[in-house]
Amino acid sequence: MSSFRGRDVLSIRDFTPADIQLVLRTARKMVPIAVGEKRSRSLEGKILSTLFYEPSTRTRLSFESAMARLGGRALGFSSAEGTSVQKGETLADTIRMVEAYSDAIVLRHPHEGAARLAAEFTEKPVLNAGDGAGQHPTQTLLDLYTIWDEKGSFEGQSVTLVGDLKYGRTVHSLAYALAELGAHLTFVSPPTLEMPPEILEQVKEKGLSFRAAHRLEEVIRDTDVLYVTRIQKERFPDPQEYEKVAGSYRVDMDVLRDAKRGLIIMHPLPRVTEIAPEVDRTKHAVYFKQAFNAVPVRMALLDLILGEGA
């Protein structure tokens, strides 16, 4: 019996480094099942509710695929339209109803803290699949898995996070977890989209050094992992300013000229123009693999939380 049985997955902060390692090792064992080479019935008879109050096709499908690969079933909705939610039902009431239909609940919701609220109204495990600009712990875990799977470890890896580091809370969770796992962090962003001071404070508390830069060219040479995020147009009142800024953080062959041979490039997808298409063909590009990793990582979580033998 693992400590995961029946547990909520609300924030990456609830995970110790040992917890994270267990998820990653379990995810690796899931890969042959995730690609259909091996069969599993470990969650046979179990039902997962997927409540998506806002659409996120990738996240929902990967959860449903993960459940099906383990022999379980998923039910739910993919947007709030046409549900009792639209008639004004509270999230608390919806959760109390859904609890009776399923063994675990996956929730995506536009309001921050929704998953924590949901967990207060049910005994069943709640998995946070993104709450507004808040936490998205399963995304963080699949990002961590990708690094670990490609690089073999976190300790001493030089990880560079580039793009919008201010508003993207997934990069905040990732930075926090990587600091805890012993990676060296570099933050590259436009001056207006820098990592917020409270996140830097948390990284410092882990006793790790980090550095910040405004230009990718300054740091690419000694980067092992480059994590690229989208810079959103809405953050810039002036469209010309946006074009200029977005252009200067674009990863293309030119930027990669000085890169290490073993550099990996990650992106949570969908990308717009942050990574030039020609980069896809290089050995550096792992973002499509990263997207695939969503399934074994979510399988691992579901199996650890709902499975018998895990």
């Binding site: 509270t90 999230l91 919701h109 309001h111 921050e112 803290g113 929704a114 709450d131």
Partner: peptide
Amino acid sequence: ANPNCISNVREPI
């Protein structure tokens, strides 16, 4: 103070 926080929505908490 966060207008998007679930605690500012009509919920029984």
